[in-house]
Structure formats: C-alpha cells, structure tokens
Simulated scan of single mutants.
Amino acid sequence: MEKKVQRYYKLKAKQKELEKELAELRQDILAYFAEQGKAESVIGSYKVKLVTQNRKEYDDDKLYQTLSDPELWRLLSKADPAKVASLTKLKVIAEEKISHTYDVKTITLLQVDKQ
C-alpha cells in the first residue's frame, strides 16, 4: 500500500506541474491569437481554434430572494448553474423572473486538433 500512496503522491505532483505548464502555454497561445486578431488558424499540423462561451454566475442571495419557495430552493440547495438551467428549460422557473440574479461571464476555450 505504501508504494501506491507514494505513486499517487508523485502523480499528483506531476499533475500540478503539467497543469501549470498547460496554463502557461494556453496564455501564450491566447496572447498570440489576440495579437493576430484571429480566432482560428492552422499552425504546423495543428488546427487551433478559440471558442467563446458565455456562462452565468448566479448570486446565491439574489436567487434565494427571487425563489423564496422552500420546495424550489431545496431542489437547488445552492446556485448550481446546471441545475438552474435545467429548471429553466423545464419551465419550473421563468427565465425572466431570475434574469437579475446572475452575471454573464465570457470565457474563451482553446481547441487544438491534430490534422
């Protein structure tokens, strides 16, 4: 068991290193695309594409005040964007009713595919 724990520890340390390097490379690639004013390009044998998404970040207090029905709030338990989106899609919650309870955050996803 000690060997498994030791291996786990080493892999977690390696994972942290890899995540740090990935974050740095991602920042460099995003900066390059910003300089070029592009969202898509072929670099060598790789197709690189930036995809922009909007994500809602809910304010728990505002959402709770708006959805003060205890039964409905119990379904959420906290402002989980996926759960709120599901309840909105199912028409349990009206989008108009909660539109003031979140901010929309724009994120950029980086996609790299081998051609």
Rank of each mutant, 00 (worst) to 15 (best):
Q6F: 11
Y46H: 06
P81C: 07
D80E: 10
Q65C: 08
K62V: 10
A34C: 00
T106N: 02
W73H: 08
T88V: 11
K38C: 00
T88M: 04
Y32G: 00
D69R: 14
K16G: 06
K49E: 04
Y9H: 05
A34H: 07
D113L: 07
L50Y: 00
T101A: 14
K14L: 15
L22K: 15
Y64V: 01
S99D: 13
E21T: 08
L30H: 00
N54K: 12
S45T: 07
L110K: 03
D61S: 15
K105S: 02
E17A: 06
E24H: 01
E57P: 06
D80K: 03
T106V: 08
L72Y: 07
V48E: 04
L87N: 03
K114A: 11
K3Y: 13
Q36D: 05
K16N: 07
E35I: 05
E19D: 10
K91W: 04
A23V: 03
K20H: 09
E57R: 14
V42E: 15
A34N: 04
D80L: 01
L76I: 03
K89G: 13
D80A: 05
L11D: 10
E71G: 06
L63Y: 06
A23D: 09
L67S: 03
T52S: 15
Q65R: 14
D69F: 08
S99K: 15
K97G: 01
E35W: 15
Y64A: 05
P70A: 02
K91T: 11
A23S: 08
D60T: 09
K83Q: 12
L25K: 13
E71K: 13
K78L: 01
E2S: 10
Q15N: 02
V92S: 13
K78R: 07
E96A: 00
K114W: 03
D60Y: 09
A34L: 09
V5N: 08
E21R: 14
K62C: 14
Q36I: 08
Q15D: 01
E35V: 05
W73D: 05
L90S: 14
K114F: 09
Q65P: 01
L11H: 11
D28L: 15
K10S: 12
Q53C: 08
D59A: 11
V5G: 07
K97P: 04
E57H: 14
Y58F: 14
R55G: 09
A94M: 07
Y9R: 01
S99F: 09
S99N: 11
E96D: 09
K10N: 10
A39R: 14
K91I: 03
T66S: 02
R55L: 12
S68L: 05
Q36S: 08
L90H: 12
D69I: 06
L109V: 07
R7D: 14
A31T: 12
A34M: 03
K47V: 06
L50W: 01
K78V: 01
Q53G: 06
